[in-house]
Design a protein around this nucleic acid. Structure first.
Lengths: 218, 218
DNA sequence: CGTTGTGAAGAGCTTCACAGCG
DNA sequence: CGCTGTGAAGCTCTTCACAACG
């Protein structure tokens, strides 16, 4: 297969497969079929095989997939088989929480610098990382060879943070601020907004509870 | 229109529209066209009109949409025009961060109880909320009329938390733990895993940088 | 023999194009 | 006149069904 365009949804599922495969690994399972993995992930088995086929042939016919090998293969395909240096902009509640979150480093994303424009925060230390003035972002980021920026500012500061990051030659931005940003076309942006999950649950529950006198609705 | 099935993607976009509309409101804009909103959200204008049409006719032909009215209409459509009582299970780093996150209450999700099974954490207070033993979840949740559960346990405890929540008659679960869970079919589950955004950025950057000697590849 | 990998069919979402209407 | 609301067309992603093969 090895097609040239990979659906966004495939990337999302691959992340899920890794998650599930790692729990299989913890439980000592060495081999999985697409059928078993699919059941655990609530997707169609062919979906999994198709997703994997974008990147190569990782299975053994008649047997299935070797868990550890598949984890390795997916991680390599996604480019997370190495450490990415990240900078965080905006050391508020959310920013601090992310800085303290061990999972980032474990998953291959090392936050090596933290910036804020609040003079009261500059110089402060969060788990051994000194908060630096945002004005010094460009030089610091270049010095440290940072490739990815995490924006955790208030919404009205997000665009400015994005500008600084783009100027610093950063290649990718994950924006946790509830605001849209515009960046040069060579910078990849991802928006994190987990509230839509809360909204989705709220919506589903509300639907269930709305009286269904008329057959339509739902 | 008022169709009976609403795409998941529509819900996600509606959440984004609210976000963007609220920033328009902050800036004093009173009326927006689908074209302007679309440009800000990076989607197609008809997409927006179609998304809204699932729920009603909120616009004025020849004019556009009144910002505040549209916010209200979308929130009502999603069922977030009221306060939802939530319980949080797992008071670790992530759990504490969510408890401290003001945005939850602001967006209509009030975390009124926090549970953990670690005896050292039980009794501890996080922003004025006492951590309660998970074993008392069922009674407490019923007492407080809790409808939504947030799981922030380690992955191997997620299923147990889900079981407790389901038993307590909870209608929806947002699972922040990196693990799949199974619940009775009347419970709505949403998985929050923002790492797939990091993976997506990692993947995009890696693609850009991979030498394209052969036209196929990746 | 059982499971993968994959072309083809199918489903669902997005975009177009324009009628409808303030 | 301009923008919304919407049926129809277009397109992408998902599922099916089976050949390929360890």
């Amino acid at each position: 297969m090895k097609s040239d365009h990979i659906p966004r949804a495939t990337i999302k599922r691959l992340a899920m497969y890794v998650q599930v495969l790692e729990s299989f690994k913890r439980e000592g399972t060495q081999v999985v079929s697409s059928e078993l993995l699919a059941r655990t992930c609530n997707v169609n088995p062919s979906q999994i095989r198709k997703d994997l086929a974008y990147f190569g042939e990782f299975g053994v016919r008649g047997v299935g997939y070797h868990v550890q090998d598949l984890i390795t293969a997916i991680k390599r395909s996604l480019g997370v088989d190495r450490m990415w240096k990240c900078a965080l902009v905006g050391v508020g509640n959310l920013g601090k929480a992310l800085l303290r979150h061990r999972e980032f480093k474990y998953r291959g994303f090392d936050i090596v610098a933290a910036f804020d424009c609040d003079p009261f925060k500059i110089g402060e230390e969060v788990i051994g990382l000194e908060v630096v003035c945002t004005r010094r972002l460009k030089e610091t980021a270049r010095e440290l060879d940072i490739e990815i920026g995490l924006i955790t500012t208030p919404p009205d500061r997000a665009q400015r943070a994005a500008n600084f990051l783009a100027e610093a030659g950063i290649k990718g931005i994950i924006n946790f601020a509830p605001a849209r940003i515009t960046v040069p076309s060579d910078v990849h942006v991802e928006y994190v907004d987990f509230f839509h999950h809360l909204y989705a649950v709220s919506f589903s529950i509300t639907l269930d509870q709305r009286p269904k006198t008329q057959p339509a609705a739902v």
